[in-house]
Design a protein around this nucleic acid. Structure first.
Length: 731
DNA sequence: AGCACGCCGACT
DNA sequence: GTCGGCGTGCTC
């Protein structure tokens, strides 16, 4: 008769004890169904012990123990405990929210067969000449060719699984040419298709990393756009896979997975690969989860949530675009997948590669300090490819019409005439960000948020980009009745229509969240671009990240200055990263690139650094500023945020919270005054925050651990909600 | 978070 | 007289 301690999805930082007859300490990590108050809940066993503090009258027996999948591995449970301690988030919510949705339901689940399904040719199949297949059976020929080239392949490698390919594979089996075999875990061959020759820099990085492939080593791989970081990931992954270990690759966005997935499948035909992100179905996610845990997959590719995947034998973690803010979860458990990845790598004693053209200042600082090993790729991989020429257009001298200057228009005309592609980058959706009454200066604002409503032309609507509220455009000013209300400023739609006026013959396409809303639209757009069916792209940051556009020669950046006024000390760093990324889109293959930036501040250090494409110099300057102002990475922060229908309540709560800390707050801890959030009103709630800063992680953690019980004890009205954000990245 | 209990205002 | 508002308290 054992006491089991169970993590349940409730906002209380404790485990719940139950009696279970059939349980031993090897069952830690199993799923249980338990009575909880008047209801039932699903939980995970985190501990098994002989005694409990809970009185016998309260202690209940469990309802069911699920053994259909093996217990969660010990290292994952340790990760949960770390998240609980470090992010000060209730343990049960840490555990339950990291699980695939199907494991949170009171239902048994089934996982696919134990073993990896691989296709291979029979001895007869190996001797069959491709010519014996009728030429019109193109797909069948292709399947046979792929199978002959590779000893064993996954079904996914043989192409998209359509009813057609399934039928053809069955035909091959019927002819006795091919067979599907079940290979038990750890027995896969790691066929590798031919890799391109590495550049000297790549080879050096690969050699350094493979030499330390079996121990915790954090690598910062700092490579300019187009320098071939992916090739380095691939070749290091090959080494790890050959040791029968698994590889986890984290990417910032779901949009970037299909491309990388294709590259990895192509290179490792016999290594099963799964994708884990918010776009996969609940069942796929569960199957992927189980496969990783059973080592039925070699490669897991996913967004931040994939950091919670259980692995049988993880050997390498790669974080691509490590500076990207999407790695930080912005609600619930506010974890940084990058920081958790470092924790996991350390815990498992395996290498981790942080890849970026423009590392976060935190990672860069670790690299120049020697905490991380620093590797650089300074040149572009395609031998002809050079870095683009970057030039500023001074908006104080050259006036813009409809947001566009003459030099930009000329460059677009020239590039189009040369049959090359251009990108006009403007990080604002819609037609115009402001709708203004000329006589009384009224502007359209959101009722639920402290934001301006953005004018969208095709629908003739005003939309809030924060809460989604929309309304039709008023015909007269609601304040003074004047009919002279005009759109101000420029969004993608307005720039698009201006371009249509100025370059009537060019094929222009707008790419932003509005234009890719339709399912599969994103893939269709990428294809259109790759097939050169478009001359000028007008787009937001969607186009800035990750994708290769070999024919893109010109990038025009319309008005990036706004971030320079931001109160957030990270805004400038993020602008620099974004502009480097966008600029890097230009001139990837044989085409040399040009970048034009329309700005009012051409002499601002950010543009100067950008023109020289000197990340290092700029990063070092920013680090000096951060040090002078005692900001991260030289200080450690936590934000206590509160939201309530009226700001006074939120501020009052933070005031009480601050007072509750006074008696135990040491010299190493600095509490700032509660302030309204920069975007004070959001979705009908008013938000405020209180920043806590410390000179070491340790003292911050000590303080927070002391503080938290006081916070929990503070009275909150029913409509007030609060949370702690550790290492916040936006204010 | 749920879900109960409990104590005060406007309705068949 | 009760239906229902949300404040408070508990869940092993």
């Amino acid at each position: 008769m054992a006491i089991i301690r169970v993590a349940l999805d409730v906002p209380l930082d404790c485990l719940f004890d139950y009696v279970s007859e059939e349980t031993s300490s090897t069952d830690i990590g199993l799923r249980v169904r338990v009575p909880f108050g008047k209801r039932e809940a699903i939980g995970i066993i985190l501990d098994v012990c002989a005694a409990t503090q809970i009185t016998a009258d309260k202690l209940k027996p469990i309802h069911q123990l699920y053994r259909e999948i093996p217990p969660l591995p010990h290292d994952l449970i340790e990760l949960y405990r770390f998240c609980n301690r470090y992010y000060h988030h209730p343990i049960g919510q840490v555990v339950m929210n990291s699980l695939p949705a199907l494991l949170r339901k009171t239902r048994s689940v089934t996982c696919k067969p134990d073993g990896v399904l691989l296709w291979k040719l029979t001895s007869i199949g190996q001797t069959v000449g491709i010519d014996t297949i009728p030429a019109r059976s193109k797909t069948k020929r292709e399947l046979l060719r792929l199978l002959q080239q590779n000893r064993q392949t996954t079904a996914a490698f043989l192409g998209e699984i359509t009813p057609h390919t399934r039928k053809l594979l069955r035909e091959l089996v019927a002819s006795g040419w091919a067979e599907e075999t079940v290979v038990s875990r750890g027995q896969q061959t790691t066929t590798v298709t031919t890799a391109p020759a590495a550049t000297a820099e790549q080879a050096e990085a690969i050699a350094a990393m493979t030499a330390m492939a079996n121990q915790f080593t954090p690598w910062l791989l700092q490579g300019v756009t187009g320098s071939g970081k992916t090739e380095v990931y691939l070749q290091v992954a090959a080494t790890i896979l050959a040791q029968q270990k698994q590889v986890l690759i984290l990417v910032p966005e779901i949009n970037l997975t299909p491309q990388l997935e294709a590259i990895f499948r192509q290179r490792f035909p016999a290594s099963p690969l799964i994708s884990l992100h918010s776009g996969v179905t609940d069942n796929e996610r569960l199957q992927g989860w189980c496969q990783a845990q059973h080592q039925q997959t070699g490669i897991v590719l996913g967004t931040r949530l994939a950091i919670f995947t259980p692995f049988a034998n993880l050997g390498l973690i790669v974080i691509d675009e490590e500076q990207d803010s999407s790695f930080k979860q912005q609600d619930g458990l506010r974890y940084s997948a990058r920081d958790l990845a470092i924790y996991r790598a350390k815990q498992l004693d395996i290498p981790i590669i942080l890849g970026s053209a423009t590392p976060s200042l935190e990672s860069y600082y670790h690299a120049i300090n020697g905490h991380y090993k620093h590797l650089r790729l300074r040149t572009r991989a395609a031998s002809q490819a050079r870095l683009p020429a970057i030039r500023c257009i001074d908006l104080r001298i050259v006036k813009a019409q409809e947001g566009l200057t003459e030099p930009v228009l000329n460059a677009l005309r020239e590039t189009t005439a040369q049959n090359l592609q251009s990108l006009v980058f403007i990080n604002r959706r819609g037609y115009a960000p402001v709708l203004l009454c000329k006589s009384c200066r009224w502007t359209a604002t959101c009722t639920r948020c402290s934001s301006r409503l953005v004018f969208h032309l095709p629908a003739r609507q005003l939309r809030c980009h924060y809460c989604g509220y929309q309304q039709s455009v008023p015909s007269a000013c609601p304040q003074c009745g004047d009919q002279d209300i005009l759109p101000f400023g420029h969004g993608t739609q307005r720039i698009e229509s201006a371009l249509i006026n100025h370059l009537p013959d060019a094929r222009i396409m707008r790419v932003d969240r509005d234009s890719i809303r339709r399912k599969h639209a994103w893939q269709a757009i990428l294809t259109t671009i790759q097939q050169k069916k478009v001359d000028i792209l007008v787009g937001t940051q969607l186009l800035a990240k990750g994708h290769d556009f070999p024919n893109l020669a010109l990038v025009c950046i319309i008005n990036p200055d706004a971030s320079l006024y931001s109160a957030d000390f990270r805004a400038e760093e993020q602008l620099f990263t974004q502009l480097m990324q966008v600029a890097g889109r230009a001139g990837r293959a044989e085409t040399p690139g040009t970048v034009l930036i329309q700005t009012e501040f051409p002499h601002h250090p950010i543009y100067q650094a950008l023109m020289r494409q000197d990340y290092d110099h700029y990063a070092q300057q920013m680090l000096k500023d951060r040090q002078a102002m005692n900001f991260p990475p030289f200080a450690y922060q936590a934000a206590l945020r509160a939201e309530a229908p009226v700001i006074q309540d939120a501020l009052a709560f933070l005031g009480k919270a601050s007072a509750a800390s006074q008696n135990r707050h040491s010299k190493q801890i600095q509490l700032f005054d509660p302030v309204p959030a920069p975007m004070m009103r959001l979705n009908g709630m008013e938000r405020a925050q209180l920043l806590v800063q410390a000179d070491s992680r340790k003292s911050l953690q000590h303080f927070l651990t002391d503080w938290q019980p006081h916070l929990v004890a503070l009275p909150t009205g029913s409509k007030l909600r609060w949370h702690l954000d550790i290492d916040p990245i936006s204010l």
